[in-house]
Design a binder for these strands. Structure first.
Ligand SMILES: [Zn+2]
Ligand SMILES: [Zn+2]
Ligand SMILES: [Zn+2]
Ligand SMILES: [Zn+2]
Lengths: 492, 492
DNA sequence: TCAGGTCAGTGTGACCTGA
DNA sequence: TCAGGTCACACTGACCTGA
């Protein structure tokens, strides 16, 4: 009637093991939340009624080792339990000497071997005979055969906790031997938990990234789901099934009004989308506004709509009456060069071949870009933006890595993205010099600065004085690198 | 600056002891509530940053022993206790409405405004008049002036808790209304901790990276300190002060023997260095061997020694007799083309301009590169290697970022590193086809495969069949990208 | 600068519910 | 009986406030 894990009163067999309510819940939480625990005492604590809270890692270990399983066909056989004790003891893995941590106690490793090089017995002559058995280093003494310095091989046995046999290999008598002066207590040995820790950090990060992807996905669905479905069906019906969609008769005035409303609606959707991105709500007001303001909104508009443009036609449907904002009307309302730019920009974006979620992650990256204005106005807001920006960058890159099966594809995508970011500069100029000066009272819309008309080409070529000096032209294209060396095996 | 009790960052002297916030609060609670803790481990636990929660008894003990004292003065009276409850409730901090979390409960925001775009009162005509006051978006409705959809400001109001007026708009009756069935309890509002969490992860990572840098630095000092100092002084004395160093008379045989010993010693040093890298000790034996074996060791040798070569001369001193392994002897012992390659390789490496610590971090990156042989032999070992490799990559890149003041410098360094990794392929070939076949019995050393001599050029050009297909030629040079967009402000 | 206080966040396990 | 869920509770420590 005792919990096999902690020794308190058991309430029954849970997940295959006689356990108390606490251990049951503990195990469930651990599995559900995929928590990675760390042991700071050497992975051999024995949780009991009082100390179960002290080392979650070992408590969880014990749950696993005793056979807890969440999809619990109650399959544990108690026979194994007894057998496993102390089986693999002496085999292979050496040395549990408690001070063996090389990182923490580096100085322990003796230096004496250095000035006393031990000429090895390797005969260099052999090496030229056989290509496969020869030592790796002919010029230099062979490593594989070199005597391993003491202290080098330590600490192996502790690692593989998955391995039941290895785990069981710490029998109580052995332990007793290494126990320090205080008796009866498990020794307080410090463990190197480099790997565990790093993995925990990565895992933590991964979890947060997954949460972000989830949030973005549901934001897309909730904010743009109807639009996207509508436009997509429009596109499919016409392109795949060849249907000619019914296009209600309309006038230029109605079209302009509808477009205006559509864009007003678009602003709101974009804002809502932005507000649903994890992290936004922690920005202060001005930074939050910046996220969807100005050129960023233009970029968002282009990318969001651009998915439903082909080289020749537009499948965007706007307004309550489902007016098709087709090429014909676009040409009536906008200047030709503008359309050329937009279609080109969107076409090139399509070529990147991002999935939907990646596209909107990219938009998040764009939105959270910390611009010079935020940087000047509020250094604090800027650092927050940078943090979020970095997060979305990570998430996007992670998504790409996950999708791309080979390096070449990933490289290719990254290169295209790099070009895309360059092109964003054009969007920025276009917004600054063209859209902000656009006269929307009569079609086709034209941009006027004072008396002079600004053409799209003018705007695109406008070399701006206060463009960020850290901007595109000399920015670091390689800022993160995994330094991926992949060299052929030296064997095989 | 460290808490004397647990070793975390201290925030000052509390109750007479340099302590962190946690230990301060812990002690206060313990005294106030007169809690008696029990140690289950023998009353001699040493609380540290990770384990302070494990044994409250010893933590409290330690507080007492280090001299924490509540100077009775400000002992609080329990009468106040009752009053304060619910005092702050209505003050300032608004909105305890439990469903107000925008991120977690997105769906609450109504969608109704979307299909009902509200034509704004902005007159587009204005925009062309003034260049600075005009709305950002002329073609599209202005964001700043656009009516904010309901639901969007929700989280704004939540955000700035400073704002009393906004806060006051959520009166307590409202609160009561939304309170769940259990009454009288403050509702359990979940806060979005995106930023905090992300920062915590980053900080955690940063701490580990700093520890790694520290470990590498001390490994350099401990393993190579004497060598580096010796060679450096040799170099300085000759290059800067123009001294001609005394070079003992020696013979080719002695030189070859000394070199052999030096290399044997080098192997051991390299192994020791590797074993001192955080993470190594958690690798299994074969992966651990791979870290300093074969071409990796050759690369290590080249970089480690390369710092003390100039274009014309070598300042490496070897052996117990401090023989100068100068260009003259190198030419006697090695073939000319090999020397050309080595001097070129090392020269180019110097051009990258890495600091010492960066150089050895780079070597760690090289050492922990998971090669195809490990990948094939042990997938598990490979994943560990990849983890460590990634870590050192992060650390190196972080160090570079920290050092480089501007993007251009960082870019440049990254580009050079990229070329360096390409060149590593040559080292790999050289090792595989030249060094492994090297006949070291007579000087100058020559590589023979069967009867045929292999020249350095042969080796360098050797296109290997089983070079990793994921290898250099099509690897992702940009694999990590921060997607750094830096565009000029749209204002200012 | 520090004592004292606050409270969001987290982990825990007793208890509930339905199969 | 047990899986899965809920939630009151305790503890923690970052942060605030006032001396
Ligand atoms: Zn239990
Ligand atoms: Zn433990
Ligand atoms: Zn402390
Ligand atoms: Zn204790």
């Amino acid at each position: 009637m005792k919990c096999e894990i902690c020794g308190r009163a058991a309430t029954g067999v849970h997940y295959g093991v006689l356990a108390c309510e606490g251990c049951k819940a503990f195990y469930r939480r651990g599995v559900e939340k995929k928590i990675t625990y760390l042991c700071y005492f050497g992975n051999n604590c024995t949780p009991d009624a009082n100390t179960r809270a002290c080392c979650k890692a070992c408590r969880f270990q014990r749950c696993l080792r005793l056979g807890m399983k969440i999809h619990g066909a109650k399959l544990k056989d108690p026979v194994l339990d007894g057998k496993k004790k102390g089986k693999r003891k002496l085999q292979g893995k050496n040395a549990e000497s408690p001070e063996s941590c090389p990182t923490m106690e580096i100085s322990r490793i003796t230096c004496s071997t250095q000035t006393d090089p031990n000429p090895l017995s390797t005969n260099p002559g052999i090496s030229s005979a056989d290509d496969f058995i020869d030592p790796d280093d002919a010029l230099f003494p062979d490593l594989a055969l070199a005597e391993v310095p003491s202290g080098y091989e330590l600490d192996l046995a502790d690692m593989d906790v998955e391995d039941d046999e290895a785990a069981a290999s710490v029998p109580s008598d052995r332990l007793a031997m290494v126990r320090s002066k205080r008796e009866g207590q498990p020794p307080r040995r410090k463990m190197v938990t480099f790997m565990n820790h790093y993995m925990a950090v990565l895992e933590d990060n991964r979890r947060q990234m997954a949460a972000t992807v989830q949030a973005v996905a549901s934001a897309i669905e909730e904010v743009f789901g109807d639009q996207i479905r509508c436009w997509k069906s429009c596109m499919e019906r016409e392109l795949i099934f060849g249907e000619m969609l019914y296009q209600p008769q309309t006038t230029l005035e109605i079209m302009m009004e509808t477009l205006y409303c559509h864009n007003a609606d678009s602003v709101k959707r974009t804002q809502r989308f932005a507000s649903m991105m994890p992290g936004t709500c922690e920005l202060d007001v001005s930074a939050k506004k910046n996220v969807t303001a100005g050129w960023k909104w233009l970029a968002f508009w282009l990318i969001h709509h651009g998915g439903f443009l082909t080289a020749e036609e537009s499948y965007i449907v706007i307004g309550a009456d489902n007016l098709r904002y087709c090429r014909y009307w676009q040409q009536m309302i906008s200047e030709w060069p503008l359309l050329v730019f937009i279609y080109k920009f969107c076409g090139e974006f399509k070529e990147i071949g991002l999935t939907q979620i990646e596209t909107y992650l990219l938009l998040a990256v764009v939105m959270f870009e910390p611009g010079v204005d935020v940087r000047k106005q509020s250094p604090e807001g800027n650092s927050k933006l940078e943090l979020i920006h970095r997060h979305y960058t990570d998430v996007l890159f992670d998504a790409l890595k996950r999708r791309c099966t080979d390096n070449a594809q990933l490289t290719d995508t990254c290169r295209k993205l790099e070009r895309f970011f360059s092109a964003l500069k054009l969007v920025h100029r276009l917004h600054r010099h063209y859209f902000r000066a656009l006269d929307m009272t009569k079609a086709p819309f034209r941009a006027m600065k004072g008396q002079r008309q600004v053409t799209v080409l003018d705007a695109l070529r406008w070399k701006d004085d206060n463009e960020d000096p850290n901007g595109f032209d000399n920015r670091a294209p390689l800022a993160y690198k995994p330094f991926a060396i992949r060299i052929g095996s030296s064997e095989s």
